[in-house]
Design a protein around this nucleic acid. Structure first.
Lengths: 145, 145
DNA sequence: GGTTTTTATATCGCACACGACATATTATGG
DNA sequence: CCATAATATGTCGTGTGCGATATAAAAACC
């Protein structure tokens, strides 16, 4: 048996399963809003700054256009955003919140608190852990690029 | 603007993007072995203990049969495992490594070291961080159940 | 200014991931 | 012993994710 090939020792596996665990906690909350988790992230991004492009959103979310385009079309079908070609540069698609999309933000404001409660940690612990996970992510992204 | 609805403050988003970052680092390494990342996890699990059931693997990997069955069929098609109904209990499917599946372990032994290198952390830092992420996962799973 | 290159988005194929449901087998209770 | 419940796996539909490729528009370069 290898010294290294043990699931228990894989931090990647801890991250992978923690990501699924977050999804399970989010699911009932986001069902209320008619959003999936990645759709929720896109909406959070647009609530922070309306009128972003597909590419800009992709950079913030670390997602390709092949992932975002169908997701954004579903948000458009749901009535939360509009996708408009830019007049200045016809290659670019600008994303704009609809009135319904803006109203959704109010209903979403209770979500982060529920997640923090479910995490069983206080805000300081979470912030510290988050910073470490981001440092790990940046090291991995640097190595993969 | 909400106090809470900011992507920067979401630990879930850090975990979600870190998980993707791991995948990007693993991809070229696992391509050599003809495995995807979830398939690799399943193989690691079977290298640790051959002859496990679908359900047993699912408990360890936190995956449903609806995810595992197609994945395991692909591993069978690739020639790495066999899926056999148990004689004692015909409901159960037992997973057994083929000779090729066993040989693959040797080629996989260099992978964990590459991942540790790419993480930019030493083994102690990773172990400490892993323990914290697992604690977070357990709290989330407890809350969701 | 017309050709080439770059850029932004979209499409397609493949592989997860899960909830809801189906099927088959075993266990249970009268 | 027979009906019912519980268990293990599988199927199906929906929604990611991404690599490879396509398309169209803008930029760069003779």
């Amino acid at each position: 048996m290898s010294d290294q090939l043990k699931l228990d020792t894989f931090i990647c596996f801890a991250v992978y399963t923690a990501s699924h665990a977050f999804n399970r906690v989010y699911k009932p909350l986001l069902d209320e809003l008619g959003l999936t988790y990645p759709q929720y992230l896109a909406m959070v991004c647009l609530w922070e700054e309306d009128g972003q492009t597909v590419g800009g959103l992709g950079e913030k979310l670390f997602l390709e256009s092949s992932t975002l385009t169908p997701l954004l079309k579903r948000l458009e079908t749901a009535g939360y955003i509009r996708r408009e070609r830019s007049k200045q540069d016809e290659r670019v698609v600008v994303l704009r919140l609809t009135e319904e999309g803006k109203r959704l933000q109010e209903r979403a404001e209770t979500v982060p608190g529920c997640i923090i409660d479910a995490s069983g940690h206080d805000a300081d612990q979470l912030a510290r852990l988050q910073a470490e996970i981001i440092a790990l992510r940046e090291a991995l992204n640097k190595s993969a690029s």
